[in-house]
Design a protein around this nucleic acid. Structure first.
Length: 510
RNA sequence: GCGCCAUUAGCUCAAUUGGCAGAGCAGCUGACUCUUAAUCAGCGGGUUCUAGGUUCAAGUCCUAGAUGGCGCACCA
């Protein structure tokens, strides 16, 4: 991209078209020509009788050279154009990528209309054709057009359709990417299918979908830096939410006992191939469940989505490899697997000093990790020793208490909490808890976080009095889970996060 | 945030040691009634990301910046 993407090479106030790149100027002139002939470049509508897909479905069986007397009107975007003297071929494409050829012969459309077609129709235009359905001598299903009309004139050239757009162009001009690249079109539909599958699965299970605040006076429910903004009417600072958790729990307290939300979270942190500053998140809470029931639910959500969208729990990734999502996903206990890999017993009593020594021996750089404590050290060691090598879907269970302020203490393991992280293809896809519902312990956890915050940890949680008040009205024992929608798409398809998000945030140019 | 690499026509990309900035597709003109990445003949199209600098001469070398990709760090 060498030019302004909003209007490449075109100053907004350009009064003349003389300075435009040649191809833009010529298309504007073609539009003018249409108007001068009294033809609309952007008519209010065209008399479509069939979709491209419907014609393909109904007439796909025609043999080469076979013609019918069935007349159709259809429209699509021009993706191929072959003007051969007195017989012109044009291929139209619909939004799903279905294509159909139209043939315009001198004999059927007449000399003037054919000449206009050749001079005024470009690749990228939306075109309407009306005529009989048949198959060309070469066996290509076609509309033998008696009439054509401009449906919408494109003022910019289409990119080369035989080569993929550069990664940057794909993201900055997704609308072009969608026209040009089948995988881009597929992703939109796969994502819609996955989200629909998740919702329907929840609905079948009697969960209610609710929407909780995006603008919050205090961003809680996760450890992350929030975006902040200002509300003029109250003259207060507000934060974009980093998680819906604390509001969903308020809903459970109030009796919305099986509840979920699929919505956006915002985190003011780095952006890379697995992180986007705004990302779609699923969270669900189930009263009288725990981290085991919610884990089983999560496994079913993912497997059912794969089954419903791809017809199998064995998914084919972007690079052509296959990934197995079926079966029971193994559970790996964090302290156990870490101990096993280190060849020595690590427990919640293992000292910070000893853990630091182990990290040092393994060559792990702790220099940039601030506010280090037992829990963070165990997690860092575990990721290095175990997590980085996980590939098959795995529930990693029973985390240190320090790093999980909203999770209840383990029913049997001291110093641990009932939490799992779901690892798929080596990245964290989701997390689940037996929720902490004891308001007194919850207050203590917040106070510990507040100490970290006071020490300068800007990701630490703050004490949320309104949330605590809600918890003091008693929340039933519950299981809860969260899963990144974008990451679920990554897991199912193998593409990067920017490809799963239709319009990801991109830095402005210049 | 740090490091490495990239940025050239509408799109995708070349350009040797610092020596006239090119190709394919797209576009324009013409030919062609069965093409399908049509073919044939001819012709246009450039702020080589930006701003400085070195040099007789810079797409190429130097400095700074912008955007992108990858790796590391942080994070989900």
């Amino acid at each position: 991209m060498t030019t302004d993407p909003s209007t490449p090479g075109v100053p907004d106030d350009a009064p003349e078209t003389d300075d435009l790149p040649e191809q833009l100027r010529i298309r504007r002139e073609k539009r003018e020509r249409l108007l001068e002939r009294g033809v609309e470049a952007y008519p209010v509508g065209v008399p479509v009788t069939h979709t491209i897909a419907a014609v393909r479905e109904a007439y796909g069986h025609l043999e080469a050279g076979q013609e019918t007397q069935d007349v159709v009107g259809l429209a699509g975007r021009v993706v191929f154009l072959r003007n051969t003297g007195k017989l012109c071929f044009v291929t139209l494409q619909d939004g799903e990528g279905n294509r159909l050829q139209a043939m315009l012969s001198l004999a059927e459309v007449g000399e003037e209309s054919l000449a206009d077609f050749k001079s005024d129709v470009d690749l990228g235009d939306h075109l309407f054709v009306h005529g009989r359905v048949g198959s060309s001598r070469r066996g290509e299903l076609s509309v033998f057009a008696g009439e054509w009309r401009m449906a919408a004139k494109s003022l910019r050239p289409l990119p080369v359709l035989h080569k993929d757009l550069s990664e940057e162009a794909r993201v900055r001009q997704r609308y072009v990417d969608l026209i040009a690249r089948p995988a881009a079109r597929d992703m939109v539909r796969v994502r819609a299918g996955v989200v629909r599958s998740l919702r329907e699965n929840f609905h079948r299970r009697g969960f209610l979908e609710i929407e909780t605040p995006m603008l919050q006076t205090q961003a809680g429910g996760a450890t992350a830096r929030p975006f902040s903004t200002h509300m003029n009417a109250f003259d207060i600072e507000l934060f974009l939410r980093i998680a819906p958790e604390l509001f969903l729990k308020r809903a459970v307290v109030g009796g919305v006992e099986k509840v979920f939300e699929i919505n956006r979270n915002f985190r003011n942190e780095g952006a890379d191939s697995t992180h986007s500053p705004e990302f779609a998140m699923l969270e669900a809470y189930e009263a009288y469940g725990d981290y085991d029931t919610i884990g089983a639910l999560t496994q079913d959500l993912v497997q059912t989505a794969a089954q419903e969208v791809f017809g199998s729990t064995t998914v084919t990734l972007h690079d052509g490899s296959e990934y197995e999502l079926g079966g029971e996903w193994p559970r790996l206990r964090m302290y156990e697997s870490l101990s096993q890999s280190l060849g020595e017993e690590i427990t919640s009593d293992t000292s910070v000093e000893h853990l630091e020594k182990l990290a040092d021996r393994l060559g792990i750089d702790l220099g940039n990790k601030r506010f280090i404590n037992h829990g963070k050290l165990v997690e860092v060691l575990w990721e290095h020793q175990v997590g980085d090598h996980l590939f098959a879907p795995t529930f990693v269970c029973d985390f240190p208490v320090e790093t999980s302020p909203l999770t209840r203490d383990h029913r049997s393991a001291k110093g641990q909490v009932e939490k799992w992280d779901l690892y798929v293809r080596g990245f964290e896809l989701g997390t689940g808890y037996s929720e902490l519902v004891d308001p007194v312990i919850q207050r203590q956890r917040f106070e510990a976080q507040a100490l970290l915050a006071a020490a300068g940890d800007d990701e630490a949680m703050r004490i949320d009095e309104d949330f605590l008040a809600a918890m003091e009205h008693a929340m039933p024992p519950s299981g809860g889970m969260g899963m990144g929608i974008d990451r679920l798409l990554m897991a199912l398809t193998g593409v990067g996060v920017r490809e799963t998000i239709l319009f990801p945030l991109v830095k402005p140019q210049g």
